[in-house]
Design a protein around this nucleic acid. Structure first.
Lengths: 227, 227
DNA sequence: TATTATTTTTAGGTAAGACTAAATTATTTT
DNA sequence: AAAATAATTTAGTCTTACCTAAAAATAATA
């Protein structure tokens, strides 16, 4: 298992995402993300677990996690992806809702030389245009204490760190609302019935939006100490 | 045959190169270029000829040429490749002997949006770093009356237009000699025994090199009218 | 025309995925 | 605890997209 196919790289990338919280990734979740049948996932997982060296740790019915080897491979792909997104937006004028697709294709083919050259041109960025952290050259993920906006309650204040979605329509919507990384907000309302949050954008005088859980759970923020 | 595999794209690219002179491309030549057995080429050629629409015109034992459809596909790949080479050298500091490999991988995955964005950033270049013409957006190849340096005899003068090789070692060698696109030269010697040419570099006072046929036949020039 | 070189055919192989259907195992609910 | 539901795995197939070696056919050349 010397060179990993694009497909395998994608599996690893998604397993990484599903296990970031510390748990294991289930067959079904992986299948849903990858758009294939659960049985296909089991098959691939078995291949990954039996590879030398093993890329995942797998016990039947318990889900998978990445081995150190698998994690390294996943981080390599993720670094490629996020550097590419940053490059495309910064240097080629891509909009943040269209970069994902292009980066998904390029991430599997660029060389280490390409990676290091765009990293240098960009000044070794630590976050991509969506605010996602970019693993450094040693593949260490910059840590931050982000929590989902959906966890906040009035009158908490926060700084938007990242937007965890690739849905182009949603990204355009968020951009319109001004809910992008770097924006300072205050939660001014919460409805326990539908979990809607009312968000006030600190910088703008009269800007206020009501957003549902499916949106607020995808926006990650850092709490601002309340004076 | 809606989306063409990388492999097919490579076949088309090489068929294009082998038929630029007007002739047909032979199975053996193609096999040699692609690094596969002749039988494999025959098989693939038949697939390409039977595709809808057909990508090549093929009669047994007569070699292949591209159909208009196949040519269009080939030019698309070639445009990608040459724009990428130009971009990598100009914007990311690649050296002209290392770009080829990177471009070969990227050429198959970039979108039309990517293509048009780098073309714009570069100011719609007509030639790549090796002097090879870049098809324009309409996939028309810029014409020029280049002829191989090996065809010149003393005391003809010429301008180097392009260097038709991807061999990194040879490219480095040529760069050292100063035999790069844009250089003005004069042929000051010819040996009919070994076909060696003695080349004087016009701009430099005392620079003179003796080069063999295997090199001079890969350098393409435009004749300069002799005053 | 005989020989050589090239090309094509034949027959078969591999690797990477994906799929369905049936069987098994876990988890809930009654 | 038994039954029902949900999730997972097995087993067996299929497709695609190549590749190859050896034999046969064709074309080119001495």
């Amino acid at each position: 298992m010397d060179i990993l196919s694009r497909n395998i790289q994608d599996y690893l990338k998604h397993i990484y995402a599903l296990t970031e919280d510390g748990g294991a990734a289930s067959t079904t979740d992986l299948a849903a993300r990858l758009g294939v049948a659960p049985a296909s996932v089991t098959g691939m997982i078995q291949r990954l677990a039996n590879a030398a060296p093993p890329l995942v740790e797998y016990r039947k019915h318990q889900g998978v996690r990445l081995t150190p080897h698998g994690e390294k491979a996943a981080l390599e792909v993720i670094r490629h992806h996020r550097l590419l997104e940053t490059y495309l937006v910064t240097m080629l004028g891509y909009s943040w809702d269209t970069v994902h697709e292009e980066a998904c294709r390029l991430e599997h083919v660029i060389s280490e030389e390409f990676e290091s050259k765009i990293a240098a041109v960009l000044g070794h960025p630590t976050h991509d245009p969506h605010g996602e952290p970019i693993p450094n050259e040693a593949l260490e993920m910059p840590a931050d204490q982000a929590l989902p906006l959906s966890a906040l309650r009035p009158p908490q204040k926060a700084l938007i760190l990242r937007v965890r979605t690739e849905n182009p329509a949603l990204l355009r919507h968020l951009e319109q609302l001004g809910l992008v990384p770097g924006t300072k907000i205050q939660v001014v309302g919460y409805s326990s019935f539908d979990q809607n949050l009312t968000i006030h954008i600190t910088q703008a005088r009269n800007l206020q939006h009501v957003i549902g859980f499916s949106i607020s759970s995808q926006i990650y923020v850092a709490l601002q100490s309340f004076p």
